[in-house]
Design a protein around this nucleic acid. Structure first.
Length: 478
RNA sequence: GGCCUCAUGGUCAAGCGGUUAAGACGUCGCCCUCUCACGGCGAAAACCGGGGUUCGAGUCCCCGUGGGGCUACCA
């Protein structure tokens, strides 16, 4: 059986959006699953769209996401060059060959004539005017240096069908397809032509791309047929939407892969999540590493309908990855975000990290979870009131001095000992544990909710600060 | 406008002629518990509409409605 070769062919526009990344991921996964090769090709034939640094973003994103390509501009391969702007001579050669084969023709019409063919809505197809030019006329114009393009010669009758692995049979009447430009007047090919030539020359067996090409695929097949080349298998992917009406896009200001990473979504979670957008595994297991995705991926699980990018679910997955990390792994990813907190450097790092790991889904949430440690000041006495704990400011007045005494004399100022001592205090006073614990925690933090209980907060603050805060709280209550 | 295409809970989705219509996220409730979170348990929540075909339709066909795409010397 022929080796499977898939490719990811982005246009370097300076932004790797989620939909693109998913296309790359599926191409990669399918190649891996089939033991084939995954190729990266840069489609930069439109010089007007050149964006500095865009190519690097593509390399970096794929590398960062763990999507490895077997051949590509930066690593080479047997089918290079892998950048279309470096293949201009190849396209010209094949365009001329297609003209000889009757699948294309020279067109010398100027913009004015083309525009005159369009109606008030800008709709109107080219009328094959130059197809009727004689060989002599063409040679004459060419020799005279008249600017030209090469157009595809689409039959005026009949229709083209192909079998898409996701969408099934797709048929388009040739009369609905215009004689599109294959080679621009600047000598560069359009996407329509370059992708066909390259996919063939690079031995691509499975073309995986967005559904926007669904209806233009028959015209590509016309070229494969005219050249006498074998058509590839097509796998079109449904779009990823921002909402029911808009696609996820840079224009809409939607998050790119890098934006998501910068916010602190775990990379593996991002990949895992986008794999699930438009594809579902046979089993009910949703959390999957790239390795597992490679093993479980199948084209039959690809969905046809557009899917909406749901950040809450990504959040959840990201949290799952965080919770599955070792303390060391969490520290490695969390540190940059921890450093943004006012509390950074002022408390035991390991302790902070430990309380954060079960409470954070996205790393950027870290500062807001612990900044309160440094925002201590006023304490709303109403906070001492808690129905379930059966506590209020009066209880606090009774609890706090005794608690301060306990903390002051405690031998080991650590969570377990602190907890035991405070519970013992409650017993001694004939109170519920919660009455003591709640009041102490409020006094220590001034917050209704904290990422840890009274004893944990005390341990984190240390004896000195805990006693200072207790004294401060008592003053406010007096 | 023409053509292509899609349509199951709020979201992702399973289903591929006969099911109490999975599962996940989110939401809500309960449990655990020194608050919050984690974890555990549970609940509410869906087949776009109309015609067919069939003993039987979420599943097949047609029409409608709604969404997306293409219709560039962009990809």
């Amino acid at each position: 059986m022929k080796e499977v070769r898939t490719r990811f062919a982005p246009s370097p526009t300076g932004y790797m959006h989620i939909g693109n990344l998913r296309t790359a991921l599926y191409g990669y996964l399918y190649a891996k699953k089939e033991g084939g090769k995954f190729i990266l090709r840069l489609e930069d034939t439109d010089s007007k769209r050149y964006v500095a640094g865009a190519v690097q973003i593509i390399y970096d994103t794929l590398k960062d996401a763990g999507i490895r390509y077997d051949e590509g501009p930066d690593i080479g391969g047997d089918y290079g060059p892998y950048i279309q702007s470096e293949r201009a001579a190849i396209y010209k050669e094949y365009a001329e060959k297609l003209v000889e084969l009757g699948g294309a023709y020279y067109c010398f019409c100027d913009k004015e004539r083309i525009d005159s063919l369009k109606d008030e809505n800008g709709v109107g197809r080219y009328d094959k005017h130059c197809l009727r030019l004689s060989k002599e006329e063409i040679a004459e114009k060419l020799a005279a240096g008249v600017p030209y393009v090469i157009r595809q010669n689409v039959p005026e009758e009949g229709s083209g069908s192909y079998e898409d692995l996701v969408y099934g049979t797709v048929t388009v009447d040739f009369k609905d397809i215009e004689d599109g430009i294959l080679l621009k007047s600047d000598g560069m090919p359009t996407y329509n032509f370059a992708n066909v030539v390259d996919d063939h020359l690079m031995g691509i067996t499975h073309v995986i791309r967005g559904s926007e090409y669904l209806s233009s695929t028959p015209k590509y097949n016309l070229m494969y047929d005219a050249f006498g080349w074998e058509r590839p298998t097509y796998i079109h992917l449904p779009p990823i939407m921002k909402n029911a009406h808009e696609k996820l896009s840079k224009r809409n200001g939607d998050a790119s892969y890098q934006d998501l990473v910068d916010k602190g979504y775990i990379k593996e979670a991002i990949i895992n999540y986008i794999a699930l957008l438009g594809w579902s595994p046979k089993s009910n297991q949703e959390k999957m590493s790239l390795r597992e995705l490679e093993e479980n991926f199948s084209l039959s699980g690809i969905n046809k309908s557009p899917s909406i990018f749901d950040e809450p679910k990504l959040r959840w997955l990201s949290g799952e990855y965080i919770r599955a990390m070792s303390a060391e792994e969490f520290k490695a990813v969390a540190l940059p975000f921890l450093q943004r907190s006012k509390a950074y450097g002022k408390y035991d790092e390991a302790k902070l990290l430990k309380m954060l790991q079960s409470r954070v889904d996205v790393l950027e949430d870290i500062p807001s979870k612990i900044d309160f440690l440094e925002e201590y000041g006023d304490i709303d006495s109403a906070l001492y009131f808690n129905k379930k704990m059966k506590s209020d400011a009066e209880i606090a007045k009774a609890v706090l001095p005794a608690a301060a005494e306990v903390l002051k004399n405690l031998e080991k100022f650590e969570n377990a000992e602190l907890y035991a001592a405070l519970v013992a205090l409650a017993q001694e006073k004939g109170m519920k544990n919660g009455q003591v614990l709640w009041c102490v925690r409020i006094a220590l933090t001034g917050r209704e909710n904290t990422p840890g209980g009274a004893s944990e907060m005390a341990e984190l603050l240390g004896r000195e600060r805990s006693l200072e805060r207790l004294a401060h709280a008592m003053e406010l209550l007096a």
